[in-house]
Simulated assay, not measured.
Amino acid sequence: MSKRPPRRLRPDEEALWQRVAETATPLHRTTLPKPTDIERPKRTPKTPVVEPVSPFSIGEKAQTRMTHDIAPSMADQIRAAPVAMDRKAFGRLKRGKLSPEGRLDLHGMTLAQAHPALNRFILGAHAQGKRLVLVITGKGKDRDAGGPIPERLGVLRHQVPHWLQIPPLNAVVLQVSQAHIRHGGGGAYYVYLRRSR
């Protein structure tokens, strides 16, 4: 579509415009500033913040190691979970006063081996009427090479609570808690099962 040129004002429209223009009071400036007249603030180049680095010799180990893990630890996530079981029994469980009726040791297993073993063990314990079992994952080895993709410390330790919260195990699991130091501490979990019906 082509644009039409603006139409000219008729004489009566032009006279009306002149009368309106005579009654208008001008603004403080009679002309608008040109874009070149406006002063722009000068940019100052940003200087990078350089943190002081301690002296380092060849062959020396680094003092600190950066971690990429910004997610809360599994212990913090489990601690923040609401208590679904009896509070008095939960307190005794946390103090290590309750004895597990069964235990599963997942040390040395891969994820592909550990998942079916955990399913078999938990479902079997529930079928036998057990209420408290211990799942030992170990604390895991530090395998993070400091690359761009972070690797978690203790893959099984982080994966087992997730498996306990999804089907088919979530139907029989009532509470998951980190074990007391007597039963393995940070490398083991108490799994409190629902009553079998």
Rank of each mutant, 00 (worst) to 15 (best):
E60H: 11
P35V: 01
P33C: 06
T47Q: 13
I38H: 03
L32A: 08
L27T: 12
T31M: 02
S57W: 02
T64R: 11
P45E: 10
P41E: 11
K34N: 00
A62R: 13
K61C: 02
P52H: 08
R40W: 03
T64I: 01
V49H: 08
P26E: 12
I38C: 05
P52G: 00
V53E: 10
P26C: 06
I58Q: 02
K61G: 03
A62P: 03
T36P: 00
S57V: 14
E39I: 15
T36F: 05
P45Q: 12
T47W: 00
T36K: 07
E39P: 08
T44D: 01
R43P: 00
L32D: 04
P48W: 01
P52T: 13
T31K: 15
V49T: 12
R65W: 07
T64L: 13
I58F: 08
T44C: 00
T44S: 07
T47D: 02
V50F: 03
P45S: 09
P48S: 10
K34G: 01
D37E: 15
K61P: 04
E51V: 07
P35N: 13
D37N: 08
T44I: 15
P33W: 07
T44G: 00
E60M: 12
P41I: 05
R43L: 14
P52M: 06
T36R: 14
K46M: 05
E39Y: 02
A62W: 04
R65A: 03
P26Q: 06
H28N: 07
K46S: 06
K42E: 12
T36L: 05
I38G: 00
D37Q: 14
E51K: 05
P45L: 11
T30A: 13
S57Y: 07
P33A: 07
L32Q: 06
D37P: 01
P48H: 05
P48A: 12
R65P: 00
T64K: 10
E39N: 04
P45N: 08
K46H: 12
D37C: 03
P35L: 13
F56S: 13
L27D: 09
S54R: 07
T44P: 00
K34A: 09
K46Y: 09
P35Y: 05
P33I: 05
L32I: 01
I38E: 06
T31R: 15
P45D: 10
G59F: 03
P41W: 04
R29P: 00
V49M: 04
P35D: 08
K46F: 11
T31L: 11
I38D: 01
H28R: 09
R65H: 10
K42Y: 06
P33H: 13
I38T: 04
T64Q: 09
E60R: 11
F56P: 00
F56E: 07
